[in-house]
């Protein structure tokens, strides 16, 4: 067990280093120049531009920049924004709680709605509840978040005035964004849980359990659901990535603070240190969540515990 966990942690580290190197290369290759977002180019002299590039260190050879980046990173220096000299790490630390709140609330919506509807629809196959579950699944997967977001905003904030249209303080600001983002996850989970539930219900052991005279409730919720949840839990790990990516759009639509907004702005301005910092941080979060998911198998499934 311990060996497996250390192995996982080591490979996770590799993922983090690899992804930040990859982002560095992509950002380097992308057209555009941070200088152009800092000054009015038509009003600047070539020397001014050269000086700025030099100050930012982007006139150096690529490998030197890359080495410098990792060198600083090892010393815990994430650098500072090229636009306003703000240090990157405190910037992320300041904005991450809002993103975390959004992601957690959305994940809660996804899991509660997804698992509940998934189980019910499998048990009551082809009944109205199954129909509703399948619509939720379809809509969640197929509707783009910015569209759902604006729609919910128009109805529940601007028309009905139930929730504020912008802001990131208090639970009321969280409702619409979490619903928007949570619906996507719910769509995936509903389908996943429904399918695996249906599969498990058809398994021989369920027949055995029923033959033993267990109540239908016990068969479904104590035994079948537990088996059906394993693929769904895997899904949650994948969803963590979806949630982080989704915040980029959602935070913009609902004018929320968060690291999604930061990275969107930073990419537009080619503010490399900020982009790097957020990516590194996000991949760290992603890796940790997936590590936790892997470890949770052991809790859910005794076979995993024994084999490891």
């Amino acid at each position: 067990m311990l060996k497996a966990v250390t192995g996982r942690i080591l490979s996770s580290l590799l993922v983090i280093v690899g992804s930040s190197a990859l982002v560095f290369v992509i950002m380097y290759l992308l057209p555009g120049d941070p200088v152009a977002s800092m000054i009015d180019v038509s009003n600047a002299s070539p020397e001014t531009i050269a000086n700025l590039r030099h100050q930012l260190g982007i006139d150096r050879p690529f490998l030197l920049q890359l080495a410098d980046y990792f060198g600083k990173l090892l010393r815990g220096d994430f650098g500072q924004s090229v636009l306003n000299s703000e240090p990157v790490l405190p910037k992320i630390a300041k904005h991450f709680p809002a993103t975390l709140a959004l992601a957690a609330a959305s994940a809660a919506v996804s899991v509660v709605v997804g698992v509940l509807l998934g189980v019910l629809s499998a048990i009551h196959r082809n009944k109205p509840i199954d129909l509703i579950a399948r619509i939720v699944g379809l809509l969640g997967i197929s509707m783009p978040a910015f569209w759902t977001g604006i729609l919910l905003l128009l109805i529940f904030s601007i028309r009905l005035g139930w929730f504020p249209a912008m802001g990131s303080h208090g639970w009321r600001t969280l409702v619409l964004p979490a619903l928007t983002l949570g619906l996507i996850g719910a769509g995936f989970i509903v389908r996943m849980v429904r399918n695996s539930m249906l599969e498990v219900i058809g398994d021989a052991f369920v027949v055995t359990l029923r033959a033993k005279g267990l109540s239908e409730r016990a068969v479904m919720y104590r035994h079948a659901l537990r088996n059906a949840l394993i693929p769904a839990v895997t899904m949650i790990g994948v969803l963590a990535g979806e949630m982080l990516a989704g915040t980029v759009v959602i935070e913009t639509v609902f004018s929320r603070q968060g690291i999604g907004r930061i990275i969107a702005d930073a990419i537009m301005a080619k503010d490399l240190p900020v982009v790097q910092g957020v990516i590194l941080f996000s991949s760290l979060v992603y890796v940790v969540v997936n590590l936790l998911v892997d470890l949770s198998y052991a809790v859910i499934d005794p076979r995993v515990r024994r084999s490891a």
């Binding site: 128009l154 904030s157 601007i158 028309r159 249209a165 802001g167 004018s255």
Partner: peptide, 18 residues
């Protein structure tokens, strides 16, 4: 000053008095 990049949010907030 509130920062609201999305047009629909920004203008809708004026219309709804937010």
């Amino acid at each position: 000053f509130k920062i609201a990049p999305e047009e629909a949010t920004r203008i809708g907030s004026v219309q709804s008095g937010q």
